[in-house]
């Protein structure tokens, strides 16, 4: 009924309130939505690099596993986003193990075991960890972090990189 009235009004030359044509906007939004959903489906496990960490580029194409993330930027070492030790402290000693990182990893491990127990599953024997290292860090930092991970029971270590196109 309204349309009819509007049409008549238009015909008669009276000013009418025109409705915005939303179809083209809907087209764009639909395409965008499909694209975003597709990137989700194709991606599987999505890993976002820790802020401040510039990952190195590589041709590797394995998807990131679900695991504990140890991020190393130019200043500190972080586990799951929490700063654990500064690089200065980590490099201070002669020993390869970083005590504060080891302590934090044990805490993470304890929580993982507790969750596994609540689920009724056996604690994971082969733990895995992902290292997100800044491209400019030195090998001795990486070595210490990997050694500490190894000593803490993390056997499968993956190095996160950005895939080269």
């Amino acid at each position: 009924m309204r349309h009819r009235r509007e049409r008549r009004g238009r015909r008669s030359g009276a000013p009418t309130s025109g409705s915005v044509n939303l179809i083209s906007m809907m087209d764009i939004l639909t395409v965008l939505l499909l694209f975003l959903l597709k990137s989700y489906v194709a991606g599987g496990e999505v890993m976002v690099p820790a802020p401040g960490v510039r990952l190195p580029n590589s041709t590797a194409d394995q998807p990131p596993p679900t695991s504990v993330v140890v991020a190393i930027d130019k200043k500190e070492i972080m586990v799951g986003g929490d700063p654990v030790a500064s690089l200065h402290d980590a490099l201070a000693g002669d020993q390869l193990e970083i005590p504060s990182l080891a302590a934090h990893l044990h805490e993470v491990q304890r929580q993982q075991d507790e969750i596994a127990k609540l689920r009724g599953a056996a604690p994971d024997e082969h733990r895995s960890a992902t290292i997100q290292g800044d491209r400019d860090i030195e090998f001795r930092v990486l070595q210490k972090v990997m050694y500490t991970l190894g000593q803490s029971g993390y056997e499968n270590i993956a190095l996160a990189v950005i895939q080269k196109s």
Binding site: L29, L32, M47
Partner: peptide
């Protein structure tokens, strides 16, 4: 749509992160 798209945009990973599986450094470790 308007509520879903910002949500997806925020959580979408535009940088494809992959991993290299490796073994531990040799020495006294392995």
């Amino acid at each position: 749509f308007i509520s879903i798209i910002p949500l997806l945009l925020l959580s979408a990973a535009f940088v494809p992160v992959t991993v290299i599986k490796t073994t531990l450094p040799t020495g006294e470790v392995v």
